[in-house]
Design a protein around this nucleic acid. Structure first.
Lengths: 221, 221
DNA sequence: CGTTTTATGGTGCGATCGAACCATAACACC
DNA sequence: GGTGTTATGGTTCGATCGCACCATAAAACG
């Protein structure tokens, strides 16, 4: 194997170009030539690393998904060693909100792909798993909260988890369109969480704390 | 004026072709030739009625918006003469769900346009007004409910209204992707509404389908 | 009846698209 | 030092794109 080059790195470099173009002008702007120019490589390279355009779109989405999962894991790990269920659920939900450029772009890319999800089975498979897993995760955490007495027994765990995830998901659009500030979105999530987690043991209930956990992220123009 | 022809009707006919193509393959499939073929007219007609492609996209969106507003009004009027606040709020929220092909397609069209909303000011203007108005409407209705004793005083009207609308909005994606059945989505909405409207005067609480209200949604695959 | 305005069809042009093809530099291995 | 595989650049082709242009039927108006 001559001229050994980091394949994954190249693929990521190209995938990022796809994302940038998709967030800017939708999939119709993701043309082979534009991607090549945006990534600073020749158009031939795209064929070499991804093949056809459809495969490029699929590959770029897979890389995006892997990225998202890893980032979420990192951010959850950053909560500290004994975060408390309330804080964990909050962290999961906030991961869905466009609180920084990375998460905004991620959602924009998903939106750009969305219509294709319905038609292209290969793409659909990639997109279908994530949200369901999130709901189950949140439901599990809330159920744990019930065990520990942090959440009232009366509430319907599955229904609340589903609505929380769905609500966070729905808020992405409004925030991106500038109809709601990120702070308002976080406040709405916290309002619902406060209703569900009526008693937290490890006192993580504060919205933007003194330390800059989820600080109000840079100027939204 | 010779050969008088219903302009609005023609424009609608063309706009519908745009919607169909957009829901099927996104905006990149909305090419002048394809729209012409789908609408059964010559490509020249599109230019005649809409002008450039961008103007066609904008025009088709405006017609879609007008449609949506009128349909929502019709459906709300169909609730009867003294619907009760709970039923009205429910009707408004259900209007956002993809419960039939028309509403599904409408949301798909919005999604197809979404990325453009962020870049194109003319499009953004069209899209920005509707959701905020919906929130205010729901908030007003819930506040009325408080006055009438149907809604507990303790709840934060604005926050709940915002989360309801946002949740309904977020549910569109999951339903369209087949991750949740429409019945489950309705059940989740009803679950939240039941929490807010603790006492309804005119007993309009049942959903339309069989009374399987918020059963714990099982894995559909 | 002729004229003018409105409505429609067809055709052509330059640009760009996706993708195949051809060439060759770079390096590992024998 | 050949040799073959890997990685990269460039070019080309048929199709399609948006759109401008040209022609003309149809009908209201004088």
């Amino acid at each position: 194997m001559p001229r050994q080059v980091d394949h994954d790195r190249r693929r990521r470099q190209i995938a990022e170009a796809v994302w940038r173009l998709a967030t800017r002008g939708g999939l119709e702007d993701v043309t082979l030539r534009q991607v090549a120019a945006e990534a600073g490589v020749s158009a031939r390279l795209l064929q070499y690393y991804f093949g056809t355009r459809d495969q490029l779109l699929l590959g770029a989405l897979e890389i995006l998904n892997d990225d998202a999962e890893q980032r979420a894991r990192e951010r959850l790990a950053m909560l500290g060693e004994a975060p408390g269920l309330h804080a964990i659920v909050r962290g999961v939900l906030l991961e869905l909100l466009p609180l920084d450029e990375e998460r905004s772009n991620r959602h924009l890319v998903y939106v750009a792909y969305f219509v294709r999800f319905l038609a292209d089975p290969a793409l659909a498979k990639v997109a279908r798993d994530a949200p369901r897993a999130l709901e189950d995760l949140v439901a599990g955490l809330i159920a744990q909260g019930q065990e520990l007495g942090q959440v009232p027994r009366g509430i319907d765990v599955a229904a609340e988890a589903a609505f929380l995830v769905t609500g966070a998901d729905g808020m992405q659009a409004t925030v991106l369109l500038g109809q709601r500030t990120p702070e308002e979105a976080v406040a709405l999530i916290d309002h619902q969480l406060a209703r569900i987690f009526t008693a937290t043991r490890t006192a993580h209930r504060e919205p933007p704390g003194p330390n800059d956990r989820h600080r109000p992220h840079d100027p939204p123009e």
